[in-house]
Design a protein around this nucleic acid. Structure first.
Lengths: 190, 190
DNA sequence: GGTTTTTGATCGAACGTTCGATCAAATTTT
DNA sequence: AAAATTTGATCGAACGTTCGATCAAAAACC
């Protein structure tokens, strides 16, 4: 007996993701989402309080899913370097396999209604990485800089290159991914 | 005797920038822009063909202004390192002194209507930097990597930290700026 | 007085949301 | 087990409001 509610919510989420990537926040509407999902627009209100509620819940949903994939196979006792590399490899695969979700996340992060409603700012996406970097600094592997600087210099490049990959401007081959991981490590190593 | 048309367009741009940073692309409208500018909404159509026309022209306007400030005082005959540092210093000051414009630019860059209408993708903001990096590679100062990788690893961190600065999460003091410039240089030096 | 600029009135379309009706499936009552 | 009731889920129609855009008339400018 599968939960019907979850399936329908997933359908609404999926339609919203598609539309947001096609027409963006400026042009999306409840009726368009409903049409894409082949349901009545009033049905959406059975699952969500409002348009804003839908969008915000979708954002948190995407973020949770991303974090799950990002930390897959990463354990606390792992050597810092192994965890570091695995996370960046995971993140690269997340971008490759979830292009629409990745792009939408980026759209959300700069939108005021997300910035204002979630005290979970831009760098917050990589916030779960703090302990790893903390450990890396403690072990003398990384520069003794502010953690956000370390995260920015090693992880943010993947965001940018991910966009270029989706634009067809760069190839995220595993060779290139390994090259970037190397550059990221060099950028912050002690 | 200043150009009156330019002034009025500037007023419309300014109101749009303010509103976009307050309520975002999802909730902005011509009437709200007009009210903020204290003019009739029909007046906007005297200067712009449509809402989309206004937004796209605003985007290109912001980009041009940013590039101007970014390259202020940078000359072709300058040593690469001097140019590199000056540009990053200029860009930091641009962020500090034009926070609304900077944030709006970031909002625009991930919006589909910009991505689709301008073949001027995300990395395109830093595209004018290509010649400098070309020169740097030729002189053996930088790693011999793809230019977009070099730009990403050295410039993109400033975008991220700029957002954290505006969120009050990091101090863009000149000491911190110099520290970042150092990190940027190290990230890509040969 | 002719031109440029601005406006208020106005339009049909679309917006987000609510509502009452419906209907299949599950539950309770007989 | 059959009948009666409740529930969960869906829908189309309709609400008042706002949207982007147009246009003729007024105002400001030269």
């Amino acid at each position: 007996m599968k939960n019907k509610t979850d399936n329908k919510m997933e359908l609404i989420y999926q339609s919203t993701i598609e539309l947001l990537n096609e027409i963006g926040l400026s042009d999306i509407s409840m009726s368009k989402i409903a049409k894409r999902a082949s349901i009545s627009s009033s049905s959406i209100y059975f699952y969500f309080e409002s348009k804003e509620d839908l969008l915000i819940k979708l954002y948190f949903n995407l973020k949770d899913q991303m974090h799950l994939l990002m930390f897959k196979g990463v354990t606390e006792d792992m050597p810092v370097k192994d965890g570091f590399e695995k996370i960046l490899r995971n993140y690269s695969n997340y971008i490759i396999n979830n292009q629409a979700n990745f792009l939408l996340m980026e759209q959300f992060l700069d939108a005021p209604f997300i910035r204002n409603n979630c005290n979970d700012h831009n760098g917050g996406v990589f916030k779960p990485l703090y302990p790893l970097f903390e450990k890396g600094v403690r072990e003398g592997l990384f520069k003794d800089s502010e953690r956000n600087l370390l995260i920015t210099y090693s992880c943010l490049p993947f965001v940018q290159i991910g966009k270029e990959y989706i634009n067809g401007e760069y190839d995220l081959s595993s060779a290139n991914i390994e090259k970037m991981i190397q550059m990221s490590w060099n950028a912050i190593k002690a």
